[in-house]
Amino acid sequence: MNEKTLLADETDELQRLGRLVGKWEVSGGATGTTSFEWMEGGFFLIQRGDLLHDGHVVRMTEIIGREHPFGEKPGTEIKSRVYDTNGNTLDYVYELEGDVLTIWGGYKGSPGYFRGEFSADGDRLTGDWVYPGGGYHATMVRS
């Protein structure tokens, strides 16, 4: 198996999240901008956001991909960690089935999650953040 085949096999599920690549305007319970880009090599997607949520400025960077600890095989789930300028770290699991994106808070099946659907042209993602005691509607439009 050559390197290109190995790369494609290992990143297929992650590559489908490539539809997020670009700049987005965010509205709903959080407002602002966010962008996604591939890290060189294609094994990680990087999100950078500048948002206003509940009166708080949230500037963040998120690294999305498979965990691959030294000496071990890559994990099967697409996981992420968010780092923000307030010192918070948040973990998520991404799941994309067709046009429906679910972002689980911490682990699959968590009571905290986002579930949204891409428009037919892929330039709009509309859904809801749900968590115990709250939640909000959210829309991202490619800019």
Rank of each mutant, 00 (worst) to 15 (best):
T85I: 13
G122A: 06
M39S: 09
Y136C: 03
H56T: 13
Y92E: 11
E13I: 07
R81K: 10
R16E: 11
W24A: 01
N88I: 10
G112L: 08
W38D: 09
T31K: 04
R124K: 10
F118K: 06
Y113N: 06
I46Q: 00
G134W: 04
V58A: 05
D12G: 14
E40N: 15
Y107S: 09
V57T: 15
W129A: 09
W38A: 08
P111G: 05
D121L: 01
I63Y: 15
G98F: 03
G112D: 07
G41F: 07
I103T: 06
V130M: 07
I64A: 03
G75H: 09
G18E: 04
D128E: 11
G29M: 00
M60C: 15
W104A: 04
G65V: 01
R124W: 07
D12V: 15
Y107L: 05
R19N: 02
G29D: 00
R142W: 06
V58Q: 05
F118E: 04
T34V: 10
E40M: 15
L17S: 03
E95F: 01
G28D: 03
P69E: 08
G41P: 09
A138Y: 11
L96M: 00
K73A: 13
D50L: 04
G87W: 01
D123V: 08
I64Y: 00
P111T: 05
L101T: 02
P69K: 08
G106V: 02
E37S: 13
Q15F: 12
L14S: 01
R16H: 12
S35H: 08
D9M: 15
E77S: 14
E37A: 15
W104S: 04
T76F: 14
G127C: 01
G106K: 02
G122R: 06
N86G: 12
Y92C: 05
S27D: 08
Q47E: 11
I78G: 05
T102H: 02
I63D: 07
K23W: 09
V58G: 01
H56W: 10
D50I: 02
L7H: 14
E40Y: 15
G135M: 04
R142K: 13
E3D: 15
L90P: 06
G127Y: 02
P132T: 01
G133I: 05
Y92S: 10
E72T: 10
Y83N: 10
R66L: 07
E77Y: 07
V21E: 03
L52D: 14
S143R: 13
K108P: 08
G75R: 11
T139L: 10
I103S: 03
R115M: 08
D123W: 06
R142E: 04
T5L: 15
R81L: 10
M140R: 11
L14F: 00
N88D: 13
G133M: 05
A138K: 13
L90H: 13
F114R: 08
T126L: 09
M60P: 12
R16M: 09
F44D: 06
L20M: 12
G112V: 05
S110V: 00
V26I: 13
H137V: 00
D91K: 14
V26C: 02
Y131L: 10
T89W: 13
T34H: 03
N2W: 03
G28I: 00
L45C: 00
R19V: 13
A120H: 12
W24P: 03
D121A: 01
G18R: 05
Y92N: 10
D128Q: 14
A30S: 10
D9G: 14
E62W: 02
